[in-house]
């Protein structure tokens, strides 16, 4: 099969951010999910929570304008915003376990049709990198995943059951990949939006789990162009 163009990472993250509602407290994982913060909707305000205890921070700081004491979960320098607050680590995770986080967006190695996902340990390697992922996955109100649809060697990441050790069971509700947008339903993955030029059959071919095709399946939605 000739390789068709896949979605860009920014588009994958924009699509998840379109689901954020006004006033939501949002926690973005390190790496690709951080791109969600580039999504701007003038009709909505989101409150950024970072696990190191900063709530209500702004965009990345411009070069030369960094505050050396203000970083996000990825150690990137972010900007202070009016209304921002700082708490210590135990209080930051009290907010997470206490159910204050409306959505967390994370990357993953695998997602299963039962909502399990794996993102902390890979095979044949000792140890793992959990960070705050298990607390967030277990306790945020919603867990969204942004990940490539296939591994580098072309194997599916959307599985019947995770092969890797899970981060949390049954946590994921929405997945954005470079091939489309998928809801997790009691019956399994439901394809709701497909990347331009990709048919449900094309996507199924690269997916281990059986896809349910939404009755109102539509083309993947991109954010409206906006002035930067």
């Amino acid at each position: 099969m000739a390789e068709k163009p896949r979605l860009e990472r920014q588009a994958m993250c924009d699509r998840l951010a379109m689901e954020f509602q006004d006033g939501w407290i949002v926690n973005l994982g390190v790496g690709m999910p951080t791109l969600c913060s580039n999504y701007v909707d003038p009709s909505k305000e989101f409150i950024n929570h970072s696990e190191n205890g900063v709530i209500g921070y702004g965009p990345l700081a411009a070069a030369g304008k960094e505050d050396k004491h203000l970083v996000n979960a990825g150690g990137q320098h972010v900007t202070a915003m009016p209304g921002m607050s700082i708490v210590h680590h135990a209080d930051s995770f009290a907010m997470i376990r206490g159910g204050m986080i409306d959505v967390t967006v994370m990357g993953a190695y695998e997602v299963a049709e039962n909502g399990d996902f794996a993102n902390w340990r890979i095979p044949n390697r000792k140890g793992g990198g959990i960070g705050g992922a298990m607390d967030l996955a277990a306790c945020a109100k919603r867990v969204f995943i942004a990940m490539e649809h296939s591994t580098r060697d072309g194997k599916p990441r959307m599985l019947k059951r995770c092969k890797l050790p899970v981060t949390a069971p049954g946590a994921v509700t929405l997945v954005s990949t470079d091939l489309g947008l998928f809801e997790i339903t009691p019956q399994g993955f439901k394809l709701v939006e497909h990347a331009p030029g990709w048919s449900p059959e094309d996507i199924q071919e690269l997916t281990e789990a059986k896809l349910i095709i939404a009755d109102d399946l539509r083309e993947f939605r991109f954010r409206a162009p906006c002035k930067q």
Partner: peptide
């Protein structure tokens, strides 16, 4: 060092570590 078994480690989720 960890891969060579020269150091021990306990892996703890960050919120659990803090609490």
């Amino acid at each position: 060092m960890y891969n060579n078994d020269e150091i021990d480690a306990e892996l703890v989720p960050q919120g659990t570590l803090a609490e």
